[in-house]
Design a binder for these strands. Structure first.
Lengths: 146, 146
DNA sequence: GTCAAGATTTAGAATTATTCTAAATCCAAA
DNA sequence: TTTGGATTTAGAATAATTCTAAATCTTGAC
């Protein structure tokens, strides 16, 4: 069944995990599947509940471990939108999260490199933008990676 | 001593609080002072410790209350950079937070409207940008404010 | 194949961050 | 002055995450 050009998402997960020295595990697959299935920016708790439906023995700690592994190998983004739980997002393209402070819904909007204005979800009223760059400062870039 | 053109930060705090129906209190003043004094994006816990030095009876709950009041009246921003505690920032101009994932330091960079490229702290190596818009979605805009 | 080392998972405890509660205090307006 | 609502307080409660130690699972060396 090893047909060329056949989509093999499991192989890609394994490869991505391997690039940062992690092993493939069924739990990591399950957590990744959950995040891919319903792209509503779930919290770790929501991922846990959904994963548990197919894998009843999965534990809380494992979900955190899997999410961290997926974030570290570049398959998932961790997003901090409000006080409280982090959310997780499998969209790795450059995009902006429109967050409704009233109902908590999140709308993804792809960024357009060549456009000067930011598109926004129809009817969304923006209060302010939060822009953060993640990386390593000059001092830490000089040190070995911990 | 009511000289025209004299800086009166306390008056501005009172006015700002009043615009959203909050009262001026010494605790709110103290918390705001702490945030203005050392602009290192402290967490609520750090604000609590610093405020306690000058106002030993201030409580944890009050610090959270004061921070929320300052955020609601537009004097302070709440920023979420990692999993865990929120941080607070008195810089209300459009700016970007460069966050070092290794040591946790935060560098403010003002945004330049007319420039196409983003300036960055010397030597900072960016891994990725997080962009979030806060506001109200179409459905919630139609409802009365809660 | 077999074994040892190290990675991963698990349940549950521990910690951290935040919110809630109820009583006390303060303040503004009638 | 009194009264109602806003605010503060200590401490309890809850939520989110991390830690711990034992069990299990790979992987690679033999």
């Amino acid at each position: 069944m090893a047909t060329a050009g056949h989509k093999n998402p499991e192989r890609s997960l394994t490869e991505k995990l391997n690039t940062v020295g992690f092993r493939f595990t069924p739990q990591r697959q399950q957590v990744y599947d959950v995040i891919l299935q319903k792209r509503d920016h779930p919290t770790a708790e929501e991922v846990f509940i959904r994963a548990k439906r197919h894998m009843p023995d999965i534990s809380h700690a494992t979900v955190y471990n899997c999410l961290d592994a997926l974030v570290k190998c570049g398959l998932v983004r961790q997003v901090q939108l409000q006080r409280g739980a982090s959310r997780y997002c499998p969209n790795m393209e450059e995009h902006c999260h429109y967050y409704c402070d009233s109902c908590g819904r999140v709308f993804d909007v792809q960024l357009q490199k060549d456009s000067t204005s930011m598109p926004r979800p129809k009817g969304f009223h923006v209060d302010h933008y939060d822009i953060a760059a993640h990386g390593r400062c000059a001092a830490c870039s000089a040190k070995p990676i911990d």
